[in-house]
Amino acid sequence: MPLDSSIYTLSALRLDGRRWNELRRINGQISTQQAADGSSYFEMGNTKIICTVNGPQEQKRGGGRDQSNEAKVEVEIGIAGFSGVDRKRRTRNDKRIQEMQYTISSAFQNTLFTHLYPHSTIAITLHVLSQDGSLLAACLNACTLALIDAGIPMSDYIAACTTGSMASYADKEDEADPLLDLNGSEEQELPFLTVGTSGGEDKVNVLIMETRVQMARLEAMISVGLDGCKQIRGILDGIVRAHGKKVLQSKVS
């Protein structure tokens, strides 16, 4: 279905009624699964993810002795067959999933203090229950929450979001609005990128774009993305603090 971009040109409202710079409803919980060392549940609109962290723990494979003196971050993503519009079975070797796994693990490899845990593994498992755009960004945010829950030291939150560019390219090039936090149907039609930062908006950890976009628009898209990451960091921080308060209260009483 071609995205109805005519609504946007008429009203500056997106298909779901948001303005260009609005995030979808974001909701997250920490410690959702007692069995794991750390866990979280995270929603960005209708994209819903469960994340569990196990470790740091000894490396599973006993074969060759691992010489590295920092922990390895292993990520596994399972996308449920019922999560999308079409019921689809994804194999473990799906190239797209592998790439997401690699992106997440390398982002956290540099943010976590892995040198504290030599010869060990931190295993992150993500279950995608429902997807409606911004999948990678939601995964990164869910991981941040779960890793905090697991108590693994890290330098800062990684907060991520997507930005796109309105498709009315045929019109005036310089008036193509950047859009924050795309949903599924927007993602299918518009050029978009995923950006993840740590420390407010100081450091960009992840920046991925798979579609083509005119050079001139990129700058606006990235700056809107950085701003979005800052907002999301605030939301994540709120979730962590609320959880902390609850934990403390239960300790006191």
């Binding site: 279905m1 009203s11 409202l13 298909l15 779901d16 009624g17 948001r18 609005e22 979808r24 409803r25 609109g45 209708n46 519009v85 079409d86 409606d132 949903n183 149907s185």
Partner: peptide
């Protein structure tokens, strides 16, 4: 619900953000 050309039926759920600033 929508029906594709192939005859497949899809169920689409879309969020709708209602506002008061129109």
């Amino acid at each position: 619900l929508r029906t594709l050309k192939s005859g497949k039926v899809q169920k689409i759920v879309r969020e709708l953000y209602l506002r008061q600033d129109i």
